[in-house]
Amino acid sequence: TTYKLILNGKTLKGETTTEAVDAETAERVFKEYAKKNGVDGEWTYDDATKTFTSTE
């Protein structure tokens, strides 16, 4: 399943996707990605669109 991440950081904005077996796995991948890029925001998830959003 393809999951999408929308980053709305103070210094980094953008989108990326990952293939994962479930939302929990995708969330771990995306949170590590955000951390590596210095984004520490509030997380939301929309199951209908398989989209995570992190907003600082």
Rank of each mutant, 00 (worst) to 15 (best):
A23D: 05
E19Y: 15
T53K: 06
K13W: 11
Y45V: 00
I6W: 04
T55E: 06
E32S: 07
D40T: 11
E19V: 15
V29G: 03
T18M: 13
T49Y: 04
T18K: 04
Y3D: 02
Y33R: 02
E19A: 08
E24M: 12
V21F: 13
K35T: 09
L7M: 10
K36F: 10
K50C: 05
Y45A: 00
K4H: 13
D47T: 08
D46Y: 04
D46Q: 04
T11Q: 10
D22T: 05
A23S: 09
E27L: 15
T2W: 13
G38Y: 04
K10M: 13
E19K: 13
E27M: 14
E15S: 11
V21M: 12
A34R: 03
D47Y: 08
K36A: 14
L12S: 08
D46F: 04
D47Q: 10
I6R: 05
E19T: 14
F30W: 02
S54D: 04
I6S: 03
N37A: 14
N37V: 15
T53A: 05
E15G: 07
A23C: 14
T18G: 03
K10I: 14
L5E: 02
T16Q: 08
G9S: 08
K35W: 11
A23H: 10
K13G: 05
N37L: 15
G14H: 14
E42T: 14
G9W: 15
A34F: 03
D47H: 11
V29A: 09
F30L: 06
Y3N: 01
Y45L: 01
A26D: 00
T1S: 11
D47M: 09
V39M: 09
E15K: 07
K36T: 10
K31N: 04
T1V: 11
E19S: 10
T1E: 11
E42H: 12
A20G: 03
A34T: 06
T49R: 06
T25G: 07
A34Y: 02
L12E: 06
I6F: 06
N8W: 13
E56C: 08
N8I: 14
T25V: 08
T16Y: 15
T16N: 05
K13Q: 12
T53E: 05
E42M: 13
E32L: 10
F30H: 01
D47I: 10
A34C: 13
G14M: 15
E27R: 12
S54W: 15
E56D: 08
K13V: 11
V39K: 02
G14E: 13
K50H: 11
K31D: 02
A23I: 12
E27D: 05
D22A: 03
T49N: 07
D22Q: 03
E24G: 09
E32P: 01
G38P: 01
L12G: 08
A26Y: 01
F52T: 00
T17L: 09
T53V: 08
V39T: 04
T2R: 12
V29Y: 15
E19Q: 14
A48W: 07
T2Q: 10
G14P: 04
K13R: 12
A26M: 01
E42G: 06
T55D: 08
E24Q: 12
L5G: 02
T25H: 13
T49G: 04
E32Q: 09
V29W: 14
V29Q: 08
N37F: 15
A48M: 11
V39Y: 12
L12D: 05
T11M: 12
T51F: 01
G14C: 15
N37G: 05
